[in-house]
Amino acid sequence: ADEIDVTIVAGHPPIFIWVKNLTETFIPTVDAELAKTGNHSIDWNEAYGGALAKVGGESDAVGTGLAEIAYNPTLFNPSLYPMQNIAYVAPFNSKNPRLTTEIVERLQDQIPAMKAAWEEQNQVYLGGGFAIDSYQIFTTFPISTLADLEGRKICAPGPAVNWVKGTGAVPVSSSLTEYYNSIQTGVCDGAINFATAAAPGGLAEVAPNMTIVDFGAPYAAALSANLDWYEGLPEEVQAALHAGAAAYSDAVFADQDALINAAYEKIRADGGTVSELSAEERAAWVNALPNVPKEWAAEQDAKGLPGSEVLAGFMQALRDAGQEPPRDWDRE
């Protein structure tokens, strides 16, 4: 039996379920698959928490051959994986992470240019797609109507600055790690965040009003392998990696389900209140936004990428799944 050296990289530390399950699900599943015949085995070197690459640098680490396999958070590389980021571009889509992941993976199978994004980075898509639980808003003040947002400063991650434009709120470009401090010091009056990240960070301590807006549960990451390395692997090993990735996806989603309930409990324990935005106000919010998805699609089209096709395919898949998107970003 031959032993294969594999370095697997993730910028986040193992405290996050998507890293923890590399160790607890992906690796054991691959090992178990290989043990069935005993022809091959893998000597794993796990490099997490910025040890080998920082968040967003995983793709480069695997593309250049520094590591063999990456937890590849596409959301931090909107210019390398533009199409994969469609759910960040077109908000108010679906609050079901499994559905968004399924749609993006299906689009990727249908539209060659989407798959080509991985080859362009010298990588192969192993599976293991993952979407974040639906984004909500956490504020220092209660929100019952859109007017409550007038003049309020809202911290938002990268592309999400576009989710509050035109609402009267002022987007402040920021990142997950800075929300707590920024709100405590008054730089922002609130932040766009998801429950499973807001809860452990104690965000409700400073922004106790959680309002369910459901910006959507965007596809955010997947597992990928270095293309040259992958092509040199025996078929049996390739199959084991895909099997491991599939099991990983299931396990991360199962953990996410369990965490969401715990997250709401933690938010309430921190003194937070959870309320839902009414359907009319949510509609008012959506209708106030400029059509950034269309602008984005045009920009991709100009680069020779199927931006409009991906946007239309994404929206149609949502409609086909009975989602009733509140805005037809693709048809306006």
Binding site: P78, L80, V89, V161, P171, S173, V292, E295, W296, K303
Partner: peptide, 16 residues
């Protein structure tokens, strides 16, 4: 080649 940027399309972007 890929027009790598930071920021967000629709807001403001800077080429890398």
């Amino acid at each position: 080649r890929q027009g790598t940027f930071v920021g967000a399309i629709g807001d403001i972007t800077f080429p890398v």
